[in-house]
C-alpha cells in the first residue's frame, strides 16, 4: 500500500501542477483540459465506490451525471430569466451560486439513486448492469423530448455560476475549486474504506451469505453505497455542466456511462486513485490522438485492448503492483 500512496501523491501533484504550469505559460485551454479531467475523475471516484468496493457494475451512472447537470442547468436558467421554478405548491427561485447548486445536485441524485438502487439491487450480475442502463435510457429519452428545458438542444448558461470570494470565470480559480472537491471526495472515500461500513461493503461483495450470518443486511449496505456513489457522480455532473456552461441529454447517454466505466477500469478498479489516472489518461489520449488522425478512435481502441490484455488492474495496478488483500 505504501507504494500506491506515493503514486497517488505523484498523480495528484501532476494533476495540479499541469494547470499551474499552463497558467504561467498562458495556455488557458490546458487548464480547461485539466479541469475536465478532474471533474471526470470525481465522477469516476463515485462509480468506483460501487464497482470497485461494492462489486456492483452500474451501467447507468450517466443518470446521476445528467441529473447533476440538469440541476445546474435548470436552477441557473431560472436565475438567468428571473422566473421562479414552480413545482406544484413549491416555488423555488433559481440560483447561480455553486454551493447551492451542488447541494441540490447531490440531493436530487441521492433521491434518484435511492429509487433506482432499491429497484435494481433486487437483481445482480449482468441483470444489474442492464437494469441500471435501462434507467439511464429512460432519462435520456425523456430529456430529449422535454421541450421546457431545450429538449435535445439542451440548455446554454451564458455565465459560469458563482462561488463566494472567487472569480469562477478565471480558469485556474475554477480548476482549484474542482480540485479541492476532488481531494475532499478522495479523502471521504479513503476514510470510508477503513470504516466498518467500507469493510462490510467489501465483505458483501465477496460473500453476501457470510455477511448475513453476522447480522448485516447486504442490501442496505449496498443501497447506501449506491446512494453515496450517485451523489458523488451527481456533483461531478453539476461541475461538468458548469465547465461547459451547457447541459444536454447526451449527458444521460449510455456512452457517458460507458466512458466513465472505461476510464475507471483503465485506471484500476477499486484503487483509490484509479479513476483519477484513468480520467487524466483519457483526456490526454483524446487531445493527442485527436490531433493525429481523423481515424484516431482506431488507435484508442487498440490502446484500450492492450491495457485490458496486458495491464491487469489498470494503470495503477501496473505501477503499484498487485494489490495486497485488505486487512
Amino acid at each position: 500500500m505504501k507504494r500506491e500512496s506515493l503514486i497517488n501523491l505523484i498523480l495528484l501533484g501532476l494533476l495540479v501542477g499541469f494547470p499551474v504550469w499552463a497558467m504561467f505559460s498562458d495556455e488557458p485551454f490546458f487548464i480547461t483540459l485539466a479541469t475536465k479531467a478532474a471533474i471526470l475523475a470525481i465522477a469516476g471516484v463515485g462509480l468506483n465506490l460501487v464497482i470497485g468496493q461494492g462489486g456492483l457494475v452500474s451501467f447507468g451512472h450517466a443518470s446521476f451525471f445528467g441529473l447533476g447537470g440538469y440541476s445546474m442547468g435548470i436552477l441557473a436558467s431560472h436565475a438567468q430569466t428571473y422566473e421562479p421554478l414552480v413545482l406544484g405548491p413549491l416555488v423555488i427561485d433559481g440560483s447561480q451560486s455553486m454551493p447551492i447548486i451542488w447541494l441540490v445536485a447531490m440531493g436530487v441524485s441521492a433521491v434518484a439513486a435511492l429509487l433506482i438502487g432499491a429497484l435494481s439491487l433486487r437483481t445482480s450480475g449482468v441483470y444489474f448492469i442492464m437494469i441500471t442502463l435501462a434507467f439511464g435510457q429512460m432519462f435520456y429519452y425523456f430529456t430529449i423530448s422535454w421541450s421546457a428545458y431545450g429538449g435535445e438542444d439542451g440548455l446554454s448558461i451564458y455565465v459560469r455560476n458563482t462561488f463566494p470570494g472567487l472569480n469562477t470565470l478565471d480558469p485556474i480559480q475554477f480548476f482549484m475549486i474542482v480540485f479541492v472537491l476532488l481531494l475532499l471526495v478522495l479523502g471521504f472515500c479513503a476514510r470510508l474504506r477503513g470504516s466498518s461500513f467500507g469493510l462490510a461493503l467489501n465483505a458483501a461483495r465477496q460473500s453476501s451469505e457470510r455477511v448475513k450470518t453476522v447480522g448485516i443486511e447486504p442490501f442496505r449496505i449496498q443501497l447506501a453505497a449506491f446512494v453515496l456513489s450517485g451523489m458523488i457522480t451527481g456533483l461531478a455532473g453539476a461541475l461538468f455542466a458548469d465547465l461547459n456552461r451547457f447541459v444536454s441529454p447526451s449527458m444521460f447517454s449510455w456512452q457517458i456511462s460507458g466512458e466513465i466505466m472505461v476510464f475507471v477500469i483503465m485506471g484500476g478498479v477499486a484503487r483509490l486513485c484509479g479513476p483519477v489516472v484513468g480520467a487524466m489518461l483519457f483526456i490526454v489520449l483524446e487531445h493527442v490522438l485527436g490531433g493525429l488522425s481523423e481515424f484516431w478512435h482506431i488507435y484508442l481502441g487498440f490502446l484500450l485492448l492492450l491495457i485490458v490484455l496486458f495491464a491487469r488492474g489498470g494503470i495503477v495496478g501496473l505501477l503499484a503492483g498487485r494489490e495486497k488483500a485488505h486487512e
Binding site: I51, H297, I298, L304, V308, R312
Partner: peptide, 24 residues
C-alpha cells in the same frame, strides 16, 4: 476467466476499432 468489467472494456475497444475501421 476475467470479470465482466474487463470484457466490457475490451469489447468497447473493439467497437471503436470496427466502426472507424469500416469508415476508413
Amino acid at each position: 476467466t476475467r470479470d465482466h468489467l474487463d470484457q466490457v472494456l475490451a469489447t468497447f475497444a473493439l467497437i471503436l476499432i470496427f466502426s472507424e475501421g469500416t469508415r476508413a
